[in-house]
């Protein structure tokens, strides 16, 4: 609990929000997958998003770095509004790092090359410097000794930690996590969650889609519950989990608890 308390103090409530979604709607064909989403996230805030599968969690966070385009509403990230303008797209991709459920490491590059690729080609960093930076982050996620191996030679948990290091090498202001542990075996989940807790301790703004309740309680400032494309409830983790206000959340929580 003490860790969580120290963590929570980093939220800057009076600054302009790091991310703001206002009236966001999205359709896949005729399927209405995001319905009037309104969400402001402050700098340094850590938000956990949960909800049943297919409820639009991935779609929402993928709209934030524009891997998906929204069709109505307004998304502002770090003061930049998302639009068709390619300049704004470049700027946002630099500020927002993303970690995927299926790692998506580049199999033809070594761990070190995976981490230095974007710093060299996007940040225009000299290779030496990029490698030093990459090693720093690889040490932070505690796998510097794997730097010269290829992704295929690493375990799932190690790969996911590399993916986190790879995103961090761009020095993003905001990190998005899309179910980072759900493709992992149970014994590997902890090593990845520990890495994420450590990241939270540095004051990073984070949005995590995850069903790891323990992680949410320990780290999250706020939990957002989504169902059928809309945000049904938001609140402080303990309050939300212990005192769900809607039937939908109750049902979801009972399913999750049964699952564990």
């Amino acid at each position: 609990m003490s860790a969580a308390e120290t963590l929570h103090s980093s939220v800057q409530t009076n600054a302009p929000p790091a991310i703001s979604l206002a009236g966001v709607n999205k359709w896949f064909g005729a399927l209405h997958v995001l319905r009037d989403i309104n969400l402001d996230i402050a700098l340094g805030e850590r938000v956990v998003v949960c909800g049943p599968s297919g409820s639009g969690k991935s779609t929402m966070i993928r709209c934030i770095n524009r891997l998906e385009e929204h069709q109505q509403g307004k998304i502002v990230v770090d003061g930049i509004e998302l639009s068709d303008d390619l300049k704004s797209l470049d700027a946002i991709r630099r500020e927002v790092g993303m970690v995927f459920q299926s790692f998506n490491l580049f199999p033809h590059l070594t761990i070190l090359e995976n981490c230095t690729l974007a710093p060299i080609w996007v940040r225009k960093m000299p290779k030496k410097e990029a490698e030093a930076l990459a090693m720093e982050y690889l040490e932070r996620v505690r796998i510097p000794e794997q730097a010269l191996k290829y992704p295929g030679q690493l375990s799932g948990g190690q790969q996911q930690r590399v993916a986190i290091a790879r995103a961090l090498c761009m020095k993003p202001k905001i990190m998005l996590f899309d179910e980072p542990t759900s493709a992992l075996d149970p014994e590997m989940i902890k090593e990845v969650l520990d890495t994420m807790v450590m990241l939270a301790e540095t004051g990073m703004t984070m949005i995590c889609v995850t069903h790891e309740m323990g992680f949410a309680r320990q780290v999250a400032d706020r939990v957002v519950f989504m169902d059928r494309g809309e945000i049904v409830e938001t609140g402080e983790p303990t309050a939300l989990f212990e005192n769900p206000q809607t039937e939908r959340l109750q049902l979801f929580l009972s399913q999750i608890l049964r699952g564990h």
């Binding site: 891997l67 470049d90 630099r94 993303m98 995927f100 033809h108 974007a118 996007v122 993916a163």
Partner: peptide
């Protein structure tokens, strides 16, 4: 996923093609 990961890192499309997709 390879396209998405590369784009999420901020690589422009041409570079995504050259550095990530084509070699694979």
């Amino acid at each position: 996923g390879q396209w998405e990961a590369a784009e999420a890192l901020g690589l422009p499309r041409g570079r995504v093609m050259n550095l990530v997709v084509l070699p694979q």
